[in-house]
Design a binder for these strands. Sequence first.
RNA 1: GGCCGGAUGGCAGAGUGGUGAUGCAGCGGACUGCAAAUCCGCGUACGUCGGUUCGAUUCCGGCUCCGGCCUCCA
Length: 460
Amino acid sequence: MSGEKETFVPLDPDNVRLYVCGPTVYDRAHIGNARPVVVFDVLARLLRRRFPKVTYVRNITDVDDKINARSRETGESIDAITGRTIGWYHEDMGLLNALPPDVEPRATHHIPAMIDMISTLIARGHAYEAEGHVLFSVSSMPDYGRLSRRSRDDMIAGARVEVAPYKRDPADFVLWKPSDETLPGWESPWGRGRPGWHIECSAMSSQYLGTSFDIHGGGHDLIFPHHENEIAQSVGCHGHGTFARFWLHNGHVVVDGEKMSKSLGNFLTVQDLLADAPGEVIRLALLDTHYRQPLDWTRERVARAGKTLDRFYAALERVGAVEPSFDREAAALGQAAWDRLCDDLNTPGALGELHRMVADLNRSEDPREQAALKGAILSLGGLLGLLDKDPVAWRQGAFAPAAGGVDELDAAAVEALIEERLAARKARNYGRADEIRDDLKARGIELEDGPSGTAWRKIA
RNA sequence: GGCCGGAUGGCAGAGUGGUGAUGCAGCGGACUGCAAAUCCGCGUACGUCGGUUCGAUUCCGGCUCCGGCCUCCA
């Protein structure tokens, strides 16, 4: 709220409470939707390791005019659209290694709570009814604009939408609006209608986390008006000093330096990306920039993340037979990375430490040191949601999307060619040996001769 | 116009009042039949102009440029 980094102290150390704004479900999730999910997933993992219990709530907005519009365009029912989109969302986020939140409330399942809240706001003089609408009276909240650092004059000067005539004040916003028979609606003291966009988060956060909780997250663009309005509603209803105490906002994703838009044709869905790279690569690419910074999504970024994971997994494979240790020594090795994450979720800084540990592991010949480094690396991986796969399977492309244009070779065929090449090398027939290697490479398989034999790697 | 961010080596990207981020790319070396992987070595990077300071990329101010938001938006 101060706009500065502050030391985090939870309200209740035995139950840290986190709320993040989730998706409006009318279409496939795009890379911009994925960033907050991955970022706040890391935050939740970090908090879980630090505190005994964390309650993470991420809502689903399933009543919204964009959904209504989609239904009108396609003729498909709203339930069908939202149900299918939620399924896609869960699938996509799972492939990005994001753990599900503890509670994922749907707006349409909480309409009575919203109506209660709106009634309270009216009773307290923070809201009024006008022409079937219920509006929040911004002038009743002196602190309005504090989060977004905006004065009332700024908001009026900046208004570029025609002000509805029933508003007492141009800055007032809708809590409830009337629905005709073609639109989804619920009975209420103000007639059949549907909630405004902001009230669901106020109602659901207080239901699952209490009127005051620790952290509220979401995209940078939600600061105004969405989060400003959530604060106004919740504080208006529950009193001064309530609602979220710490706010985290992630920066936007742009694609090749340009804002994503359908007209530019650079609108990237998570599905599009998963067709080119494993989910873990997408995840690493998202974590390679600090969450508050804007992130420019490029092919190079994805390629770099892929190389990085290959390197990490190769280091783990080298010590595949070593049992990782998670003792004090391992914790000490991982301390620097832990400190980075605890300092405003500095994932790029933590990844730098991870690179350092991986280099140390590659260099290490001491089994005891290897065990500690392996433990520290896996432990940090668990915090970042990375490195949970089998290194050999990773190398052989078990998690790679089927690469178009590359011959499908089964492992047995590759092994047979490796055997043949080995024989050729023994006979000093290097021409034939190199021919096999080049041929495999052309088919997407790269060979690596090591002290313990020849390994093959699937390349993109 | 208002508000909020940002400007770091070829690229990506942290951070710091005084030595090293880290990665990718590049160059040289070790290893290898040759490669690949790995390891070792190699870069006077902090937009600009002032101020504070023994010392500023880091703090303060001006300027330039870039981006976001200003009731659709993750």
